[in-house]
Design a protein around this nucleic acid. Sequence first.
DNA 1: GTAATAGTGTCTTTCAGACAGTATTCA
DNA 2: TGAATACTGTCTGAAAGACACTATTAC
Lengths: 205, 205
Amino acid sequence: MVYRDSFHKTLEDYPRPSVAVDTAVLTVPPGGELAVVIVSNRLPGTFIHPGERLSDAVLRSLREKAGIEGLRPRQLLVFDDPDRDPRGWVISVAHADAIPTRRLNPNRSHYLLPVARLDKLDYAHNEIVELAVAELRADYVAAPDPAQLLEEPFTLRELHTLHEAVAGEPLQRDTFRRAMVPMLAATGERSTGSMGKPAELYRRG
Amino acid sequence: MVYRDSFHKTLEDYPRPSVAVDTAVLTVPPGGELAVVIVSNRLPGTFIHPGERLSDAVLRSLREKAGIEGLRPRQLLVFDDPDRDPRGWVISVAHADAIPTRRLNPNRSHYLLPVARLDKLDYAHNEIVELAVAELRADYVAAPDPAQLLEEPFTLRELHTLHEAVAGEPLQRDTFRRAMVPMLAATGERSTGSMGKPAELYRRG
DNA sequence: GTAATAGTGTCTTTCAGACAGTATTCA
DNA sequence: TGAATACTGTCTGAAAGACACTATTAC
C-alpha cells in the first residue's frame, strides 16, 4: 500500500503514530551532584492529548507523576524508531529542564539518580539524560545559574559549588569569579554565620 | 473527555496527530550566497508513512519533490501548535541539511532563495530556515566545509569564499588560514589557470 | 615591469591557567 | 592567635585581530 501526498487530501487517509513526551528533569541537591528525576526506572512521560501542546503534555506528566509544577521544558530530539515501543507505533519527543531540589515534592513516587552513575533505564532514556546534561552544561558555561537553581541572594562560593556540580568537574576558582562577576548584580550585603571572611551576596544580573 | 495513561492500555484508545516532516536544504551556488531550496513558497515536506523513520520520510519528500538524493538530514525542532495546519491536527518535525549546488537537479520545480533576503514562507518555515542557518554556521566555525559543499581538491581561497558565504560576513584571511590548515590534508598539487601565485590544493583532513 | 593572488612574520590584545599574596572573619 | 574563607595581583602561554611583508604567477 502506498500513501500519496496532496495538499487537498484529507488527513484521515493516513495511519498515524501515537505521540509521546518524555522528560529529563535535572536537579542538584544541596552539596550533592547533578541528578535526574526517575519514576519506576524511566523518565516521566505521557501521550499527548488532542489540542494539547507538547510542552503542556510534559507539564501534565510531571504534575501527575512527580508533583512538579512550573517548569518550561525544552525539546531535545525525537525518537522515531517504529519498533522502539512494544505497544505499537510511538514517536517520542524528548524534553529537558532543571528544577531546584527544594521544589521537588518529597511525598511522591519519584526519586533522584546521579547522572554520573546511571544504570540502564527503560527505553532509550539514558540518551535523553545525556543530551539534557550536555545542554545544561553548555548553558552553565555561558551564564551564572541560568536554570535558577539557587535561591537569591547567593555567594560566589555557592555559585561556584553549583557550577562544579553541573559541570561534573572542578572549576578554577579565580577564573570562575572573573568570568561570572560581570554578569552578576552585587547587593552590597554580606553573608553571615559562616567561617572566614563574609562574602558579597549577589543576584543574577 | 479525558485520556488516561497506562502501560497496559492499548494505544488505539488515543486520538493521534498526523506527523509531517519539513526540511530546509541549504546550498551555496558558486560565487553566490547561502540559499535554501523552496518548493511553491514552502520547504519540501511530507507525512510519515507507517513503519517509516523520520529521516526516510525526509529523503522521500526530497526525492519526489526536488529530485535530491543522498542527504543525511538532522532534526531541528518539532512544531506542535494544534491550530498550525488548517487541514487538521498536524505535528511537524523540522529537519535540515546542506547540499552542493551541482547536485541539485535543474529540471525540477524547486528554486533557490537567498536566506539573507527571505520573504514570508508558508507555515512557520522561516523559523526553520533560521535554525538551519544557525546550525550550519556553527558547524562551519569549527571545521573546514563540514557539509562537503566543495569538490576536492580545493584551494584555501575557495574554502575561504565558501565559509564567508555561509557566515554571511567577511572572515579574516590569515586567521582563517591558520585555523583551517591544521585540519586539512595538503595534496602537494597546485592550482592552475588562475591569476597570481598558484595555490596549494587541499582535501578535508 | 604591474596586478593579482598565495603565504608568512610579528606585534598587540585578550583571556585562561596558575599561583601567590592580602583581607576579614570565627573559634 | 590560627584556621578558614574572600578577594586581588601578576606572570605565562595560547590564540585572535591586525597589518605588513615576501613569493610566485599572468599579463
